[in-house]
């Protein structure tokens, strides 16, 4: 058996989050999420948490495990020796109940960067194909692997201090489209702001936290270069677009 110290917050009942200990079987094939499911099914049906796929695809099971932002379906009980294991809601977000946090802010930020293929001029018929070479796919593929788990936001010290900061996944998402050969959009006004890439101080915690190797820190640094060069070009009298 291993002890899970689970953060509980029941609005109307708890003034602030409190820890509750549960003993769950220590099985080598159990992730922290399996432990939580065991609690919910057998020990305490009132525990609330989010999950869906149980295989690192849906991005809904992010929590703070022993102080670190983790996907609980991919974090195994046996990684923590004798325990205890502390399970808390994702830091940096308002808690709704127990381990469930309010993610509306990040969802709005993801939508804000125009995450779709922007085309200019005449549209080809819907049946038309836009072919890409393997190299053109490779240019943005890494950034398309994001599962919106928000671990990067939870890890980011800038987001914690500056809630307006657009943040790692949203900027990586913008780059996913910026670097797509089919996209003709211009996201400079959205990204090259103090709340956009210039808010990032290159701490790099987002990249360490990311379970899908998206490397949002790299996405941000690359856009900083693009944005800085564009800004310099805009300063030149003959460079204004």
């Amino acid at each position: 058996m291993i002890t899970l110290q689970v953060s509980r917050y029941r609005p109307g009942q708890d003034a602030e989050p409190v820890f509750q200990d549960y003993e769950v079987p220590l099985r080598s094939d159990w992730a922290v999420l399996d432990g939580l499911a065991h609690i919910k099914d057998h020990l305490d049906g009132t525990l609330s948490f989010r999950w869906s796929c149980r295989m690192g695809i849906c991005g809904s099971c992010g929590m703070t495990v022993n102080g670190e932002p983790r996907l609980t379906c991919g974090t195994f009980l046996t990684d923590y020796g004798e325990g205890p294991i502390r399970v808390e809601p994702l830091r940096g977000f308002p808690v709704i109940r127990d381990l469930v946090v309010d993610i509306d802010d990040v969802l709005a930020k993801l939508a804000h960067v125009k995450p779709w293929l922007i085309r200019e001029g005449e549209e080809l018929p819907l049946t038309a194909e836009y072919t890409q070479t393997p190299a053109q796919l490779e240019a943005y593929k890494q950034y398309s692997m994001c599962i919106n788990c928000m671990l990067c936001y939870s890890a980011c010290p800038v987001y914690a201090l500056e809630p307006d900061f657009l943040g790692p996944a949203a900027i990586a998402l913008a780059q996913r489209y910026n670097l797509d050969s089919r996209d003709q959009g211009d996201r400079f006004d959205l990204l090259a702001t103090d709340e956009g890439v210039w808010g990032c101080t290159f701490v790099g915690e987002c990249t360490s936290a990311c379970p899908k190797h998206v490397d949002p820190a790299e996405a941000i640094q690359r856009y900083k270069l693009t944005a800085a060069l564009t800004s310099v070009r805009n300063l030149l009298p003959w460079g204004r677009s």
Partner: peptide, 8 residues
């Protein structure tokens, strides 16, 4: 914002 130049 002066940030792009400072960043360069």
């Amino acid at each position: 914002t002066p940030e792009p130049y400072l960043w360069l």
